[in-house]
């Protein structure tokens, strides 16, 4: 029973990841859909990182004593100026671990 459960869970996750990668899927993503999907990265990744930074210990934390917020602002500045993912990540993590 447990194996059936595990395999069904794995199948659902895999299908949701693979479905649109299959070229024989009888669906053609037209220019409008592709244009819409162009916003997936900025939207979904922001929806993942923003709560990590702003939602601390059960509530909204906009205080200057929130190390996540300070280091995130620093990361944002670095990201815009350097456009280097690894450098931005490492330097802002260094700042985060110093100030927290």
């Amino acid at each position: 029973m447990i194996w059936t459960t595990l395999i069904l869970m794995a199948a659902i996750v895999f299908i949701s990841r693979y479905l649109f990668l299959e070229p024989r899927l009888p669906i053609r993503l037209g220019p409008r859909v592709l244009h819409f999907l162009h916003y997936t990265g900025p939207a979904a990744l922001t929806a993942i990182w923003a709560p990590i930074v702003f939602h601390r210990e059960g509530s909204l934390d906009l205080g200057l004593d929130n190390p996540y917020l300070i280091a995130a602002v620093f990361a944002a500045l670095l990201a815009i100026t350097t456009r280097n993912v690894l450098l931005t990540t490492l330097l802002s993590m260094a700042l985060f671990f110093i100030i927290r």
Partner: peptide, 26 residues
């Protein structure tokens, strides 16, 4: 996670529509 995603997302903001998407998602 936050640092990496910020580092990936922000340099891709080159149009107003993308900026608004990021702000609304946030």
């Amino acid at each position: 996670v936050a640092a990496t995603f910020i580092a990936i997302v922000l340099p891709s903001v080159k149009k107003l529509s993308v900026l608004v998407t990021v702000i609304i998602a946030l």
